[in-house]
Each structure stands twice: as structure tokens, then as C-alpha cells.
Amino acid sequence: ETGKELVLALYDYQEKSPREVTMKKGDILTLLNSTNKDWWKVEVNDRQGFVPAAYVKKL
């Protein structure tokens, strides 16, 4: 879809709370919100949640 910003997972991340999502290094995720410098909201496999901003980079 146009207008979607994507990020690349630089590291594996295992969710530690229900508000977070698990990702694997190399995953491409849809970026939903990056206003917080530490935690970015992403969508992966129809799930939305937060990942550490340092673990992903914008494509």
C-alpha cells in the first residue's frame, strides 16, 4: 500500500509485555508511529505493538 513506511528489523526482539511484538532480524515491518524516540509502534502479521527504536531502521 502506498503511504506506508517500512522498517527493517536489525536484531531479534522477544516481546516482554502484551503491548510489544516479537520480530526476527531481517523482518520488514510496517511503521505506524515513530514519535517516541525509544519505542516505535509497528504492525507485523496483523498484530500491532511496540519495538525498541534502536532495533529497527527506516527503509
Results as ranks from 00 to 15, higher is better:
residue 47 R to P: 00
residue 1 E to M: 11
residue 55 Y to T: 07
residue 42 V to G: 00
residue 20 E to Q: 11
residue 37 K to N: 11
residue 23 M to F: 11
residue 29 L to I: 07
residue 53 A to K: 06
residue 13 Y to F: 07
residue 35 T to A: 12
residue 19 R to D: 14
residue 51 V to G: 01
residue 38 D to L: 12
residue 29 L to E: 00
residue 48 Q to V: 15
residue 52 P to A: 02
residue 10 L to G: 02
residue 6 L to P: 04
residue 24 K to S: 08
residue 6 L to H: 10
residue 40 W to K: 01
residue 10 L to V: 07
residue 22 T to V: 03
residue 20 E to R: 04
residue 51 V to F: 01
residue 27 D to A: 08
residue 37 K to W: 08
residue 58 K to V: 13
residue 18 P to Y: 09
residue 21 V to W: 05
residue 19 R to C: 14
residue 24 K to Q: 10
residue 4 K to D: 08
residue 1 E to G: 14
residue 45 N to L: 12
residue 18 P to T: 10
residue 57 K to Y: 10
residue 57 K to W: 10
residue 51 V to H: 00
residue 36 N to A: 09
residue 29 L to K: 00
residue 16 K to A: 11
residue 25 K to V: 07
residue 57 K to N: 07
residue 6 L to N: 05
residue 45 N to F: 10
residue 22 T to L: 03
residue 25 K to W: 03
residue 8 L to T: 08
residue 15 E to P: 15
residue 4 K to M: 12
residue 42 V to S: 00
residue 47 R to L: 07
residue 33 N to I: 08
residue 37 K to R: 12
residue 55 Y to E: 02
residue 59 L to W: 08
residue 51 V to P: 00
residue 16 K to E: 08
residue 2 T to C: 14
residue 42 V to I: 08
residue 16 K to G: 08
residue 6 L to K: 11
residue 1 E to T: 15
residue 19 R to T: 12
residue 33 N to E: 13
residue 36 N to L: 08
residue 35 T to L: 09
residue 33 N to C: 11
residue 12 D to K: 03
residue 35 T to S: 13
residue 56 V to A: 03
residue 38 D to E: 13
residue 20 E to T: 07
residue 47 R to E: 05
residue 30 T to W: 13
residue 41 K to N: 06
residue 8 L to N: 02
residue 5 E to D: 12
residue 24 K to M: 09
residue 36 N to I: 06
residue 29 L to H: 03
residue 48 Q to H: 08
residue 3 G to V: 14
residue 6 L to F: 15
residue 33 N to Y: 07
residue 14 Q to D: 14
residue 9 A to S: 05
residue 41 K to M: 14
residue 3 G to M: 14
residue 43 E to L: 10
residue 56 V to F: 05
residue 46 D to W: 08
residue 50 F to E: 04
residue 8 L to F: 09
residue 36 N to T: 06
residue 34 S to A: 11
residue 23 M to N: 00
residue 48 Q to L: 07
residue 47 R to C: 06
residue 35 T to G: 10
residue 42 V to D: 00
residue 41 K to W: 15
residue 3 G to D: 12
residue 50 F to A: 02
residue 28 I to H: 05
residue 3 G to P: 14
residue 55 Y to P: 01
residue 35 T to I: 10
residue 39 W to P: 00
residue 16 K to S: 09
residue 5 E to Q: 13
residue 41 K to V: 14
residue 35 T to W: 09
residue 12 D to G: 06
residue 31 L to W: 01
residue 20 E to L: 05
residue 36 N to Q: 09
residue 16 K to Q: 14
residue 17 S to G: 13
residue 19 R to F: 13
residue 19 R to N: 15
residue 37 K to G: 10
residue 29 L to P: 01
residue 9 A to Y: 01
residue 56 V to E: 01
residue 16 K to W: 04
residue 29 L to D: 00
residue 6 L to V: 08
residue 54 A to E: 12
residue 14 Q to Y: 14
residue 7 V to Q: 01
residue 22 T to P: 06
residue 20 E to K: 04
residue 36 N to G: 10
residue 47 R to T: 08
residue 15 E to V: 06
residue 50 F to M: 09
residue 12 D to N: 08
residue 5 E to A: 11
residue 22 T to A: 07
residue 37 K to T: 11
residue 52 P to L: 04
residue 30 T to M: 12
residue 19 R to H: 12
residue 21 V to R: 02
residue 20 E to W: 04
residue 17 S to F: 06
residue 56 V to N: 00
residue 15 E to G: 15
residue 3 G to R: 13
residue 14 Q to N: 14
residue 48 Q to M: 11
residue 7 V to G: 12
residue 34 S to D: 15
residue 35 T to N: 14
residue 8 L to C: 09
residue 52 P to S: 01
residue 24 K to R: 13
residue 30 T to Y: 12
residue 6 L to T: 08
residue 7 V to L: 11
residue 23 M to D: 01
residue 50 F to C: 10
residue 44 V to Q: 15
residue 8 L to H: 04
residue 55 Y to G: 06
residue 7 V to D: 00
residue 2 T to R: 06
residue 31 L to R: 00
residue 14 Q to R: 09
residue 57 K to H: 10
residue 36 N to K: 08
residue 49 G to R: 02
residue 58 K to I: 13
residue 41 K to C: 12
residue 34 S to I: 06
residue 35 T to R: 09
residue 40 W to D: 00
residue 3 G to C: 13
residue 17 S to C: 09
residue 24 K to T: 10
residue 49 G to H: 02
residue 55 Y to M: 13
residue 10 L to D: 02
residue 57 K to P: 01
residue 57 K to L: 14
residue 22 T to I: 03
residue 22 T to Q: 04
residue 41 K to P: 01
residue 12 D to S: 08
residue 50 F to R: 03
residue 58 K to G: 05
residue 42 V to H: 00
residue 20 E to D: 05
residue 18 P to A: 12
residue 49 G to T: 02
residue 29 L to N: 01
residue 7 V to S: 02
residue 9 A to N: 01
residue 10 L to S: 03
residue 1 E to D: 15
residue 50 F to G: 01
residue 59 L to H: 06
residue 18 P to H: 10
residue 44 V to D: 11
residue 56 V to K: 01
residue 22 T to G: 09
residue 46 D to R: 09
residue 12 D to R: 03
residue 44 V to L: 15
residue 2 T to S: 12
residue 18 P to R: 09
residue 30 T to L: 13
residue 13 Y to E: 01
residue 59 L to E: 04
residue 38 D to I: 15
residue 26 G to T: 02
residue 53 A to G: 04
residue 58 K to H: 09
residue 47 R to D: 03
residue 54 A to Y: 09
residue 54 A to Q: 10
